[in-house]
């Protein structure tokens, strides 16, 4: 099976989707001729023509607003916002329009769009190239929110998202574009070619939305993670010698609650990790759900390891990023509680 980076896998997903369905169109800033600032759309314009893959003016509101109109016509737009940090000008279109069109029109009109955006930190991106705004979308009825953590899932989830009848926010952890990252910034990064999840089938396949993956089975404690934090959690558990069960959520909305509940009922302990800021972050929803559904099985308070409640800093990158040390401490505390 071929090896792909996450970038290549994402590009392959769009290639496959465009090849199968003439209604799939791909556009955004620098997405066309240049192939995207992260190379995710490289070659698509040459292959499918400039009315299927094209550059847009620098207007996130315009990109998403026109995508919604195209979807109402019957296309399946896969739009890119260059960084998740720049999605806010389109927030009204996403929340007030894309998410609600099916509901408010009783299905007269629908909005099968995908909004791809690179997300997350760990790259010295500072305040506006590092944010993780997923909680701003998981709070919105009508959206689906996906965060892949490896090339295979990225391709399968993206094809599933493009084929999905509802609007999907597709957050791509840019720290994982070229290889897995466990937070050990002092070590050299290994490429996806050395990782089993870098094996990605060439043709069409999907990874279903709304289904989590158990990355490591364990008995001592459940870690709920997604994106880059899946690898941080794995490394933290190994370093601390804790037999953790690690769940990669993959889809945040709708959530695979069954997998979570089964795991926490088994382990009795739960640690939630994400890069996004703590207060009202997605971890709060996870903690509340675990508390509600697993209360009598819990042997310790649910711990949350997250970004601090500050804007994402530049120089203090590794003091901010919830790396293996901070996650490891939370694992020990939860085991000792």
């Amino acid at each position: 099976m071929p090896r792909m980076t996450m970038i290549e896998a994402i590009r392959s997903a769009m290639d496959v989707a465009m090849g199968r369905d003439d209604n799939v169109v791909v556009f955004g800033e620098d997405v066309g001729y240049f192939g995207g600032v992260f190379r995710c759309t490289q070659g698509l314009q040459q292959k499918y023509g400039h009315t299927r893959c094209f550059d847009t003016p620098i207007s996130e509101l315009g990109i998403i607003g026109t995508a919604i109109g195209m979807a109402a016509y019957g296309l399946r737009p896969c739009a890119e916002v260059q960084f998740a940090d720049y999605v806010y000008p389109a927030y009204d279109q996403i929340v007030s329009e894309a998410a609600r069109i099916r509901y408010r029109s009783n299905g007269e009109f629908t909005c099968p769009i995908v909004i791809r955006m690179p997300t997350g930190g760990g790259i010295f991106g500072g305040q506006t190239h590092s944010q993780s705004p997923e909680a701003l979308f998981t709070h919105v009825s009508g959206l689906k929110v996906v965060v892949p953590s490896n090339p295979r899932d990225a391709k399968g989830l993206l094809i599933a998202a493009i084929e999905d009848p509802d609007p999907v926010i597709f957050l791509e952890p840019k720290r994982l574009y070229n290889g897995p990252f466990d937070g050990h910034h002092e070590r050299p990064v290994t490429p996806w070619s050395k990782h089993e999840l870098g094996e990605v089938a060439d043709g069409h396949f999907t990874v279903p939305l709304g289904k989590a993956a158990v990355r490591r089975e364990g008995a001592a404690l459940t870690i709920l993670a997604y994106g880059t934090m899946v690898y941080v959690a794995q490394t933290a558990a190994e370093e601390m010698g804790i037999d953790a069960e690690i769940i990669d959520l993959r889809t945040l909305l709708p959530l695979d609650l069954d997998t979570i509940v089964a795991s926490v009922k088994k382990t009795g302990r739960c640690v939630v990790v994400h890069e996004a800021t703590l207060t009202s972050g997605y971890g709060a929803e996870l903690a509340a759900l675990v508390q509600e559904h697993c209360f009598y099985h819990l042997e310790a308070p649910i711990a949350r390891v997250a970004g601090w409640d500050t804007p994402y800093p530049h120089a203090q990158e590794w003091d901010y990023f919830p790396g293996p040390h901070r996650v490891g401490e939370a694992l020990i505390e939860t085991m000792e509680a």
Partner: peptide, 22 residues
């Protein structure tokens, strides 16, 4: 579908027209 949020549909109309042209 009419939205309570003002102006949103103006740019959607452009997208719909782009789709028709595509």
């Amino acid at each position: 579908s009419v939205s309570g949020n003002l102006g949103t549909q103006f740019v959607q109309a452009v997208g719909w027209a782009m789709a028709s042209a595509i």
